[in-house]
Simulated assay, not measured.
Amino acid sequence: MSGDAVAATEQSLTPRPADDGIPDSKDSKDNSKSTEVSKVVEKPAADLLVRLNDDPALGFCVYAARAYRRGERLFEEGTALEATHDAHKEGVRNVYERYCQLSAERRRALHGSFPYLAWANGVDAQEAASARTLVGSLAKGLVIDNRLTAADHMQMRPDGGRSVEEGPGTPGSLAGTPPKKASRAKTALYGLLKWPAAPQDVPSSPEEDAEKRARTETLDWFSRYAFRLKPEASFVKPGGNHQAAVYLLTDLINHRCGGFQNCRVSADVGTISVLALRDIAAGEEVTINYCKDVKDFQCMGECCLRK
């Protein structure tokens, strides 16, 4: 995904009961000396397949591993991270604070779905890649054929999975991000007028620089991937502050323009559902419409490829 948060306005649905594959308790052991017949419980076929797109520019993608009928719900998923994201830059945008408040386990799950977020916060590439198996862990009643490899995860990081040179206590430092140079003219002017030194000219510690970069990149990541929630369900009083959320699996679904997508989303506080707009064949890519403004988003799908 790219651009600002997505609007989701459809009604949410009730969850589909999960098939846990556990045999009924009435199937007790037969104490007779007759030949024991073991009951074989077949593993259900996968519902969805997750892998790296043939075009890496499209990132991870989701395919239907089985057929779906029009109106059928593919899955329901819980929120991975929710934050306030104002439409205006001057407003409240607290995603970095919310990210830091998450448990280590929840942050690890996010790193498995979003290599960019892991890179932004200085997370070791191999450690983040090992969490890719958690993709879809918040979805209900869903069997996923996860084809993502460590190499796929590395390929989606801006640093390509290379180790980041960072000093002690700088977990958020980024590779290839040089510090800003102080303006010599501004420094000279402040000295001439005997004003106090400009705040931006005061040297900061590596830890402060690392946190600033992590904050900026985390905000950029959230702006690209977050789904905007219903205002009436997100806060009591209407205003400029809007709640938005990201999801471990839904965010991996690629965009197609109106009329070309085969699914729609129904987002609310706490959950999101993905429903089929038409019949979907096994092996077909699952797609949704991000509802982006053309000035904020460039479609990479076949619906907009130049012929």
Score class of each variant (00 low, 15 high):
residue 152 D to F: 14
residue 149 T to V: 07
residue 33 K to S: 12
residue 234 S to W: 13
residue 118 A to F: 13
residue 70 R to E: 14
residue 243 Q to W: 08
residue 264 R to D: 11
residue 106 R to N: 14
residue 213 R to S: 14
residue 305 L to N: 09
residue 85 H to K: 00
residue 93 R to D: 10
residue 176 G to W: 04
residue 280 I to V: 15
residue 136 G to D: 05
residue 130 S to V: 02
residue 201 D to Q: 15
residue 87 A to I: 05
residue 287 T to I: 05
residue 159 D to L: 02
residue 131 A to R: 08
residue 224 R to K: 06
residue 191 G to Y: 07
residue 112 G to N: 05
residue 203 P to R: 14
residue 150 A to F: 00
residue 258 G to C: 01
residue 58 L to W: 03
residue 56 P to G: 08
residue 109 A to W: 03
residue 134 L to H: 09
residue 299 C to Y: 10
residue 26 K to I: 04
residue 73 R to I: 12
residue 105 E to N: 08
residue 258 G to Q: 11
residue 183 S to V: 04
residue 74 L to W: 12
residue 257 C to S: 14
residue 259 G to A: 05
residue 132 R to V: 15
residue 52 L to D: 02
residue 147 R to E: 10
residue 246 V to D: 02
residue 171 P to C: 11
residue 116 Y to T: 10
residue 153 H to N: 08
residue 304 C to L: 15
residue 285 E to K: 00
residue 211 E to D: 08
residue 118 A to Y: 10
residue 306 R to Y: 12
residue 82 E to H: 04
residue 127 E to F: 09
residue 284 E to L: 11
residue 142 L to A: 02
residue 96 Y to A: 10
residue 185 A to Q: 08
residue 25 S to M: 06
residue 163 S to Q: 11
residue 122 G to V: 01
residue 161 G to V: 00
residue 51 R to Q: 12
residue 227 F to E: 01
residue 108 R to E: 11
residue 228 R to G: 11
residue 223 S to N: 13
residue 260 F to K: 07
residue 114 F to L: 08
residue 74 L to R: 11
residue 135 V to E: 01
residue 233 A to Y: 06
residue 238 P to I: 01
residue 209 D to V: 13
residue 156 M to W: 00
residue 128 A to T: 14
residue 13 L to G: 05
residue 122 G to P: 01
residue 252 L to E: 01
residue 157 R to M: 15
residue 170 T to M: 11
residue 263 C to D: 07
residue 27 D to P: 00
residue 298 Q to C: 10
residue 170 T to E: 15
residue 152 D to M: 04
residue 246 V to G: 07
residue 49 L to K: 14
residue 68 Y to Q: 07
residue 142 L to D: 00
residue 124 D to N: 15
residue 200 Q to H: 12
residue 292 K to R: 15
residue 65 A to E: 09
residue 289 N to Y: 06
residue 298 Q to V: 13
residue 148 L to I: 15
residue 173 S to F: 06
residue 265 V to F: 06
residue 15 P to H: 03
residue 298 Q to T: 12
residue 272 I to N: 04
residue 193 L to I: 12
residue 117 L to F: 05
residue 158 P to A: 12
residue 263 C to E: 02
residue 235 F to W: 03
residue 1 M to E: 09
residue 166 E to L: 08
residue 154 M to D: 09
residue 275 L to F: 08
residue 214 A to G: 15
residue 23 P to H: 01
residue 179 P to S: 11
residue 176 G to V: 05
residue 143 V to A: 12
residue 260 F to N: 10
residue 85 H to W: 13
residue 41 V to R: 01
residue 94 N to T: 09
residue 36 E to T: 11
residue 43 K to N: 07
residue 150 A to V: 15
residue 197 A to T: 13
residue 100 C to A: 08
residue 216 T to A: 15
residue 51 R to I: 03
residue 42 E to F: 05
residue 62 V to E: 09
residue 138 L to N: 12
residue 255 H to L: 06
residue 52 L to K: 13
residue 155 Q to M: 14
residue 65 A to D: 09
residue 179 P to T: 13
residue 80 A to I: 03
residue 49 L to I: 14
residue 75 F to K: 07
residue 15 P to R: 13
residue 89 K to R: 02
residue 248 L to A: 02
